[in-house]
């Protein structure tokens, strides 16, 4: 751990709760590298999370941090950002957090285009509760609530975000530190709602239940089941390779964000209330 990372950590709160081999530490490290590289003012960064393994990240991060309720991190962050527009608000969610219980907030946040950065630590399973099925568990994979294999179809969060209208949409993996740092910097710098789907490893549950119990096996799994692609046109591709999840930046468009539009509206109606 370098000084660059150490200054963003609450050392008294370590050790963290994540299992050996969990990819979350790698993601957090990349996030801190990105924040350091961008030169953000530590006092003006807020990290807001939901519930789950990913949700525990803010405990160890020395920013303004809020650990909220399951699925609602984006809604809390919406209030925070609207009343405090100069804060850089980064939202950390798990995959079940963002796309099952928080699915409604996720799609509306994409649509609303408030200036937030949303990261999903996507391990394809519910880790903190003991390895149950998530909306992102690939078809056929086992969990403690799908012992014979998942018979549902998995959510592709990138396509979901694209469909819901997010201005910046990317996918990376906790296997690829360099790509994570690049994408996080782009996402944080994007004015408007930015989403990065970060595929990561849960050796304790996803790995053990799917014959990938060794942490290195899961890293190879992440490498071998994803297909690097910087091709933005990819979003129009209706049939990606069946077993390969494309990584890359799928959309990066500047659109007027909610906060800017609200300020303009407020200015235009200033003093025109009825009372």
């Amino acid at each position: 751990m370098s000084d660059q990372h150490r200054r963003f950590l609450r050392l008294r709160q370590l050790p963290h709760v994540w299992c050996p081999g969990c990819g979350n530490g790698s993601i957090v490290k990349a996030l801190l590298t990105a924040i350091g590289d961008l030169g953000l003012d530590q006092d003006r960064v807020a990290v807001i999370s939901g519930i789950g393994c990913a949700g525990r990240a803010p405990f160890i991060l020395d920013f303004n941090t809020m650990h909220t309720t399951h699925g609602r991190a984006l809604a809390f962050a919406t209030g925070m950002k609207l009343v405090n527009p100069d804060l850089k608000v980064i939202v950390i969610m798990g995959d079940g957090d963002a796309s099952a219980i928080g699915g409604n907030h996720f799609i509306h946040s994409c649509r609303r285009n408030l200036d937030l950065t949303a990261l999903v630590f996507n391990n394809g399973i519910y880790g903190l509760t003991g390895g149950q099925l998530a909306p992102t568990t690939p078809a056929g994979k086992r969990s403690t609530t799908s012992m014979s294999g998942n018979i549902e179809h998995a959510f592709d969060l990138v396509r979901l975000a694209l469909g819901a209208g997010a201005g910046f949409v990317a996918r990376t993996t906790s296997y690829d530190n360099k790509q994570m740092v690049t994408f996080f910097k782009r996402a944080i710098s994007h004015k408007g709602f930015a989403f990065v789907d970060v595929m990561t490893a849960c050796p304790t549950y996803f790995g053990r239940m799917n014959d990938l119990g060794e942490p290195y096996e899961l890293l190879h799994y992440l490498r071998d089941t994803t297909s690097p692609s910087e091709d933005i046109a990819r979003e129009h591709d209706e049939s990606p390779p069946a077993d390969l999840m494309p990584t890359g930046i799928f959309r990066d468009e500047e659109r007027r964000d909610y906060g800017t539009l609200y300020s303009q509206r407020a200015l235009a109606t200033s003093g025109k209330g009825r009372s």
Partner: peptide
């Protein structure tokens, strides 16, 4: 702001309160 449901509404105002409102 008009939110997407009541859970989002209460969550947003709590976020807003910690933002100083």
């Amino acid at each position: 702001i008009q939110m997407e449901d009541e859970i989002a509404s209460i969550s947003a105002i709590i976020g807003g309160a910690w933002g100083g409102a």
